[in-house]
Nucleic acid binder design. Sequence first.
RNA 1: GGGCGAGUGGCUUAGCUUGGAUAGAGCACCGGAUUCCUAAUCCGGCGGCCGCGGGUUCGAAUCCCGCCUCGCCCGCCA
Length: 613
Amino acid sequence: MADEAPEPGPPEDEADPWSPARRHLSQAVHLALQREGFAGTLGEVERNLGEPPEGKGDLAFPAFRWAKALRTTPPLLAERLAGAIGSVPGFARVSADGGFLNADLEALPFHLSTLAMIARRGDRYGSWPATGPSVLLEHTSANPTGALHVGRSRNGVLGDTYARVLRARGFPVTTEFYVDDLGRQAATLVWIWSIPPAQWPTEIREALPLVTSPEPPPGAKPDHYYGQAYVPAFAYMRAHPEAESEVNALANRVEQGTGDLRSYRRVPQAILEGILSSLARMNIRFDRFVWESDLVVDGSVQRVLERLARSDKAHRAEDGALGVDGRPFGLPEESPYVYATRADGTHLYPARDVAYHEGKFERAGRVINVLGQDHRLHVQGLFALLDAVGESRRPETLFYGYVNLPEGKMTTRGGRVVLLDHVLDEGRRLALRELETRRPELSDAEREEIAEKIGHSAVRYHLLRVQPDKPIVFRWEEALSFEGKSAPFLQYAHARAASLLRKGEATGGPGTAPRVPSRAEAPSSWDPRETALVRSLSRLPGLVDRVAQDGSVHLLAVYAHDVAERFNEFYQSLRVLDAEGPLRQLRLALVHASRQVLANTLDLLGLEPLERM
RNA sequence: GGGCGAGUGGCUUAGCUUGGAUAGAGCACCGGAUUCCUAAUCCGGCGGCCGCGGGUUCGAAUCCCGCCUCGCCCGCCA
């Protein structure tokens, strides 16, 4: 492939097989329209190119609205355009059909060049060189007060996937986790663990009879171990004013920047590490952590408050609390103000959030947050404050719906939660059980490794496959389904392809990829399943481009299923290794390209491609 | 009450940003495929007033208005 001369054309042509076709066709249509007296832009034409239904060609242009502007009828205009256009590079014919202009690609060159592009680009098929502005993407940012539940992990799955897609699209992305160590939740846990369990109040000791050590015992995850004290400690604090004031005093000291941060952070830090190890099982990692308390220590919260105090948009409550009128930003009449400080001048979360965002804007040109739908109003408050301090930049937000249980909302304090670790463990267990019956020839260690990858991929895919703003009702059978629309379905297709390549001695390593046949060598007529497969493979770059724009990461999950399905149809009905000559070569190239696209797509989704399963 | 989000076959869901030609899947159910490259697969069947009503348009699941249902938020908590 390396010695093949690259086609001349814009860089876009090197990334997306559809790019030259769309460009040539829209240029031709635009030119023809101009001759009819149309004055619009090329982009306008290209945006209107669509995919016609099965059997009506490959790209279609609806003539309706243009016909109106040009005072003729759509079928007539389509006819005239078709006549004027003649031949377009890459297309076999352009013809009128009712009010539509339908264009048929020259199938063979398009299919072969798609395969060649995939072979040439390899892991980079579906990506662009990093040339865009830097992006800072904050996600998950779970309070370090206990183990993560599946609902929270939806944030991580969406955020991590979006980050991967943006990187692929050419944006240098940094991911951040905001560690909310101030506030009463964290302080409650810090407080209880500052006391040796043996000296805990009776109510708490009775609620946690097995907890005797101030440190997690060997084998216990710190997020689970420390976190279990949260509910009883919180309840106790609420019932005992002297405990509550201790917690408040603790929180106030760090809020003022006068506490001993090192010892204060011991428990939150340990819990955070537990949370991160759970997320890492699903391939979620972070580039940077910002501790809320650091924003106090480094003075950035103070600077924000000073700017706000000077602002003519500031609102000062009678008792002295400092805030801003949020009504212009959509805050409700009944509670129009968002406050940055309490009456005593101590700062509140919104102040720290503004300080955090000022830092983000310094670090990147584009700032994105992944937030649960319960934060919609908070963001409006944040905007009001940013406006008041004279900040014109704004973060973008990807909102997502809750993960609920069939019985209702997950509540930590109500004790109705499904923890991520438990789902991951159960996924691994079920996968292992399958592997024991299906693949007895593998070693225990291999089966264990594969089972973990199947299990966590299944969970991740389940959280990814629906539109972010739709709520999900968590059901074990669905989350851990291994058939149909599931990660194992995708992994299975990948494993089948990998197996074929091993047997066809084309492992995909350097120099071993099957050569994409030339136009002269390739069979001229293809099976419909072969063409459907390449077509599917050709769509990845266009999709990455779109998802990077609007964060609709679920479309990539849907796409992965489409590719796997096309591959399975192909695999099921056509022989690869038994085929001969050019046909074998073509099919091996198809398998190779399919494996590549599946691997690239799975990687974008943070799922594990498997060589065998 | 206000604001925001969602309503598509029995269940889950894609398509809605940018209106376009028979609304596409998965699960469940029924029936089929394995002397052959991994049946976690494939093929066929069943099943849809796209929440309801109106409007815009040559054309509406898609845009606009109203209504209904569900969810979330509405603290000097975070």
